[in-house]
Design a protein around this nucleic acid. Sequence first.
DNA 1: GCAGTGACTAGTA
DNA 2: ATACTAGCCACTG
Length: 102
Amino acid sequence: MHSNYQKIYAVVALIPAGTVATYGQVAALAGLPGHARQVGYALHATPRDVQIPWQRVINARGEISRRSDPVFGDLQRRLLEAEGVVFDEKGRVDLRRFRWHP
DNA sequence: GCAGTGACTAGTA
DNA sequence: ATACTAGCCACTG
């Protein structure tokens, strides 16, 4: 397991319920500025035994990023809504309201 | 080693 | 406001 993945997982684990963080934000907090794409890749490759709130990481536009299997996007939105995160009519989150401020 | 890929982003039009 | 672009960089075959 790559240590950078562990750093990313550690940061994601800190995001409180009801808030979200962007890929770039997670990368920067993990000490890996400019590695936003790797955050997405790391989450995609998260082992089942590593349990982290992956649903709280969204893109810089406040929306859930498209992936190969859309079913995970639907799951992500439902998980966030269950935590109190509100989506607008275009499926976007107001980052001014819900972004995590560590 | 090289080329393709992707849960990204900031800039430009 | 949306659409496209270039830059990004670890992973994979």
